[in-house]
Nucleic acid binder design. Structure first.
Lengths: 335, 335
DNA sequence: CTGTTAGCGCATTCAG
DNA sequence: CTGAATGCGCTAACAG
């Protein structure tokens, strides 16, 4: 078996020579075939196969100023919360020939800032942010870069450019309103300490009317931290009737810890989560939660970016996709 | 407030002019500061700030043939399984100044193939695959591209280039061995129908010695599919003693469905999952599962790629990281 | 429909 | 230590 020596990759030049046409004709045959005659098209295609040519998008992008890449910045990919968004974003972009460059800010403002610079250095055609851009200087650099930017999973009247999200203040308020409607008096919160989770807490307190016992855990929250959080909360306030948890994962931890302590959910302790994870409808008791359409965020964000990349101006650059409280057994009226 | 018109981004040329040095001196000041005198270094730095210069990595990469990008291909980002790997990979690469370009093959061979081409077109400095490269032509193109490639989450003696993973056949065999050691006679499997999950099933059957009732569900498997799978299995074989599930998520679904049917776990039905998800140790009963160090896969893969990018030859390009059965309450000996 | 001429922004030769 | 020239691979703009 004769292994092809890994010689330098074929360039468009090689293709053109092989096909007996000029460089630009070969280029057009590949990117704008409608401008080229059937015959030459055929010859170029044969030459491509013969040479094993794979285009160099970097080089093309340098001239055309289109990298066909979109930067995507998340706090951390391991946050289940953002997965449907990431999946939809990646898929929708890929369908249009764009790839995502991934960055993780680690819930850290300085890293986010540096990451935005790094990303801009790669000249992406657009940028997606899970969350709002934190620093003023980063906002400015993004505006300067002149690329479409979608902020998401949050709300602001003055985004850098475009936004697909919802108000965490309103979510917190809605949960507090729901708790009020239940007639509960002694309630608490178990929350991650990131910006968005804290906003929900603020919204909760604003509607509730006064501070409530709260356990903060480091983001990203998980099941184990939920168990810890309940212990903390019960130490402060042993007679809580209901707890809002900043994620379903954390709520599951709280539920397990409660059951381990012999507390019945919801009779002794009602629970509400956030995010509507897959398991939430299936655990026993089923978990009341706040549903947010993460897939939709990803898809709309991609569409907005693509539209702007195509030179159009979206009619609705700020989309509030809202949210919904899903009432389930974990908050069934306790007697 | 005078908004800076989004004029064209500053280039190194602008910086050089501003600093009163030549283009190349400015270039060196930024990438090889040790070759430049203190004084000029200072002036270049000032010029960078003055112009708001952000380097264009695309242009630099064109000449230097280094894009500082690594391509990463996953079946789907929404598979919780791969998250620790993805997180560790992204982090380790970022520390070395590399970013990840993400691609999803959707458990589809043709898409994987096309995706590899798309990725090669971006001239990444390396490629990470969750799984093995499926098609021979893709393997060939990767070899031709001459970039470091790490296949992962599986095992092969002849990877395209490097590999960090473990044998799914052995996992299946180990689980069957464990089931045999328990003395169970009537066992079944609930599995996703992707390549790796099927390999575990094969390994199971090989060690078990004969076929067992099996319910296959489309990948990626989840809790809801687990519930369905148990229904299917019980329809075939109502008196199963134990079931191996191809993911912890699916096992949780099977457990919930079992409990909904009044079956006690493990007394009436023992369960073993795969993946050691966060919740698995906490559910009631705690889930026996197979633990695989996903973070390690990501980190080692990144290190191997980085080492090769730096021109070195890793001593151990094929790493079997193994796995471990974690015995918990869901397979406690039934009487 | 096709080709020629110029770069895109930077880094790699080589010389000073 | 610094600089001038050259070209990475491709495409936009203009000719034919």
């Amino acid at each position: 078996m004769k292994t092809t020596a890994p010689k330098k990759a074929a360039t468009l030049h090689d293709v053109a020579r092989e096909a007996g046409v000029s460089l630009i004709t070969a280029s057009r045959a590949l990117s704008k075939p409608e401008l080229v005659s059937e015959k030459t098209l055929e010859r170029v295609k044969l030459a491509v196969d013969a040479t094993g040519y794979l285009p160099n998008l970097l080089a093309g992008g340098l001239k055309s100023r289109k990298s066909q890449m979109i930067a995507g910045i998340l706090p951390a990919v391991s946050v289940a919360q953002f997965l449907p968004t990431l999946q939809a974003l990646t898929d929708t972009l890929a369908q249009a020939g764009y790839q995502l460059i991934l960055g993780q800010s680690g819930y850290n403002q300085a890293r986010e800032d540096a990451l935005i610079n790094t990303m801009i250095s790669r000249r992406p055609d657009g940028l997606f942010m899970a969350g709002l851009v934190g620093s003023a200087s980063a906002r400015e650099r993004l505006v300067q870069a002149g690329i479409p930017v979608v902020e998401s999973w949050d709300y602001s009247d003055r985004p850098v450019d475009m936004l697909v999200g919802f108000s965490h203040l309103k979510v917190g308020g809605a949960i507090a309103g729901y708790f009020l409607s239940k007639g509960w008096k002694r309630v608490g919160m178990a929350s991650a300490d990131d910006h968005r989770a804290r906003q929900r807490c603020e919204g909760f307190v604003a509607t509730w009317g006064r501070e409530v016992p709260t356990a903060f855990v480091p983001a990203p929250s998980g099941l184990a931290l939920g168990r810890q959080a309940l212990s903390q909360l019960l130490a402060q306030a042993p007679d809580l009737q209901a707890i809002y948890c900043s994620s379903d994962q954390m709520a599951q931890g709280v539920m397990i810890e409660a059951q381990a302590r012999g507390l019945r959910v919801p009779q002794d302790l009602a629970l509400c989560g956030f995010g509507n994870a897959e398991f939430s409808a299936h655990v026993e008791p089923a978990l009341t939660t706040v549903s947010v359409d993460g897939r939709l965020i990803g898809e709309l964000s991609a569409r907005l970016i693509l539209e702007r990349c195509a030179g159009h101006t979206p009619q609705q650059p700020i989309v509030d996709i809202g949210f919904q409280i899903l009432e389930r057994a974990s908050t069934a009226q306790n007697p």
